[in-house]
Amino acid sequence: MASTTQPRSKVRERREDVRRRVLRTAAEMMADGTPYTELPVQRIAERAQVARSTFYLHFPDKSRLLIALADEAVEALFGEAVVWWRADHADGVDGVAHAMRQMIAAYREHRRVLHALGEVAGYDPDVAEFWRDRMRRFTEVVQARLDAELRAGTVDPEMDVRTTAQVLIWTVERTISAHCHHDEGTGDERIARTLARSIWLTVYGIPPGPPRAAPRREPGLRGP
C-alpha cells in the first residue's frame, strides 16, 4: 500500500504546485499591465517554468485559466456582502456600508481579472456561464433574505423579491466596476455610503434614525 500511496501523493502535490505556479504567473503578468486577452499561453508557460503541454493538462484552454483566476476574485468580491445579507442587520446602514467598502476593496485588488471576466464573458460561452452561475448564486442569497423579510412583514408586501434581488446585485456590481475604472480611490467612501443607503431604502423603505437618548429627568422630580 505504501509503495503506491506515496507516489500518488507526490504526483498530486506536483500537479497542485504546477497549477499554483501557472495561476500566480498569469496574475503577475496581468498585474504588470498585460491585458488578459494579450497573454500568450507560451509566455505564461515559460515564465511559470512548465512545458506548454503541461499547461494544457491543467487548463484545456485560456478560458479555463481565466475561470480559475476569476473563481477567487469573485469569491472575494461577494464574500462580505453574503455575510451581511445573512446577518441580523442590527447595525443598519453602517453594516451595509461596511460590506460595500469590502466589495470596493476586493474589486480594486482583483480588478484586472474581473475586468477580463466581464470582457471575455461577452463572447466566450464557458466564461459567460461561469459568471452567470456566480451571479445566480449571489442572487439566491439575497432573494432568500428578502423572502424571509417578506414573511416577517418587515418589507413592502408588494415587493417582487426575485426581481428586487437581481436589480440590487447588478446595480451594486456595475456601479463598483464603473467607479473603480474611473476613480483612483478618493470617492470610495462616498460610493460605499451611497450604495448602502440605496440598498437599505430599497429593502426597508427608510434608514434607521440615530439612537434615541434616554429621556432626561427634571431636577427635583422623583420617579415613582
Rank of each mutant, 00 (worst) to 15 (best):
M1G: 14
T5A: 15
P7R: 05
P7D: 05
R8M: 14
S9Q: 10
K10Q: 13
K10F: 13
R12V: 10
D17P: 09
D17R: 09
R20Y: 07
V22E: 04
R24H: 08
R24C: 07
R24T: 08
T25V: 03
A26D: 00
A26E: 01
A31P: 11
T34F: 02
R47A: 11
Q49D: 13
Q49Y: 04
A51L: 15
A51T: 15
R52H: 04
T54P: 08
T54E: 14
F55D: 06
Y56W: 04
L57A: 15
H58K: 04
H58R: 02
F59S: 03
P60K: 09
D61Q: 10
S63Y: 12
A70H: 04
A70D: 02
D71K: 00
E72C: 09
V74G: 02
V74L: 09
V74A: 05
L77M: 03
F78M: 05
V82F: 05
V82L: 12
V83H: 03
V83G: 03
H89Q: 12
V96I: 13
H98E: 07
R101P: 08
Q102T: 13
M103R: 09
I104A: 00
I104V: 09
I104H: 02
E109Y: 10
R111N: 07
V113G: 01
V113P: 02
H115M: 15
V120W: 01
A121T: 01
G122Q: 08
D124R: 11
A128Y: 02
R132S: 12
D133R: 02
R136S: 02
R137Q: 13
T139H: 05
V141L: 01
V142Y: 01
Q143T: 04
Q143F: 10
A144L: 07
A148V: 14
E149K: 06
L150Q: 06
R151Q: 12
A152G: 10
G153I: 15
V155L: 04
D156H: 10
E158T: 14
T163N: 10
E173T: 11
T175V: 15
T175K: 02
T175R: 00
I176N: 03
C180F: 09
H181C: 13
H182T: 14
G185L: 05
A192P: 06
R193H: 14
R197T: 14
R197Y: 05
S198E: 07
I199A: 06
I199L: 10
V203F: 05
V203A: 05
Y204G: 13
G205Q: 07
G205S: 11
P210T: 12
P215A: 08
P215Q: 07
P215F: 03
E218I: 15
P219E: 11
L221S: 14
